[in-house]
Computed example of a mutant assay.
Amino acid sequence: MPATVETGAAATGAVKPLRIEFCGEWYSVEPGAAFSIGRESDLTIDDNPYLHRTFLRLYEDFGMWWIANVGNLLSATVSDTTGSVQAWLAPGAKLPIVFQTMHVMFSAGSSTYDFTIHAEDDFYNTSLSASHESGTTTILPVTLTTSQRLLIVALSESILTQAVPGRGVIPSSAEAAARVGWSMTTFNRKLDNVCSKLDKLGVAGLRGGTGHLATNRRARLVEYAVATRLVSVDDVVLLDRAAEESRKGEESP
């Protein structure tokens, strides 16, 4: 049986309890109670110093559950189970929990974390419906070149291949470039291109203001790509192929 932590009092109305899944453990949140997530919270994610003591908060209001970002630096990517709808939850923002299964992913330092919220209520009656709340995006078709997909997979490999979802590590640009056999100049140029492409499609968080790429764009790129199923574990084989081609190129006279 998975570990369970009960929070709050008995149900106070029509709203049903939430269940939170993180690293194989389960937590229950009862209506009328609030549930915090962070470094020192009801759900303690990690002792990562880059993570807020209290980062996210789940609570009931107006007859439904909400998720709020109560931190002041970090953001989170929230998506439905299909990846068809995603939202970027910036500091101070909040969103209603309208799907029966909602995935939450965020980065602190070089680590990326994810957990799943399970709700009994499905306000849209289907996980394929798009939310019109502020900050929510219906995913547009994204066509990636082979090298763009390879770059994203190199950055996402740890998250895509983890046995139990919960925590992954995003490699440095140098590590990712070495993984696919590219120079840093090539890697950075391709990173600029893919971030610019997604930015033009309305993906938030890939630029830190007009003309300035965000310093945490690699983390945001990974969060978006994994949350929206832009890449999957099936794509990891591309890395080995690229490494093999790079090795053969070095051995050629």
Rank of each mutant, 00 (worst) to 15 (best):
A243K: 15
K200G: 04
Y124M: 13
L239A: 08
N188R: 15
R207I: 06
T12Y: 00
A68D: 07
V142L: 09
F106P: 07
T44E: 14
L213W: 14
L206D: 07
G166Q: 03
G71Q: 01
D80G: 13
L201W: 05
A68E: 14
V85R: 02
V153C: 08
G209M: 08
Q162C: 09
I159L: 14
E223M: 12
T161H: 00
G92Q: 08
I170A: 03
H132Y: 14
A227M: 13
T116Y: 00
R218T: 15
V164D: 02
Y224Q: 07
L191Y: 03
S173Q: 11
S131K: 03
V78K: 02
P141E: 10
M1F: 13
S129G: 11
D61F: 01
N193H: 10
R247F: 12
P17K: 07
P141S: 11
E250G: 00
A242W: 07
E175A: 15
S28M: 09
G205L: 06
A178Y: 02
W26S: 15
E133T: 15
S110G: 06
H118C: 08
G8E: 11
L95F: 13
M102K: 01
I37H: 05
L151R: 01
L160Q: 06
L95P: 02
G168W: 01
A9E: 12
G71P: 03
T116K: 14
A33N: 13
D192R: 13
A93K: 11
A10E: 14
R19T: 12
Y124N: 09
S172H: 05
L221M: 09
S156K: 01
F106C: 07
N48P: 04
I97K: 03
V222E: 02
T138P: 05
L150S: 04
G202L: 04
G205N: 04
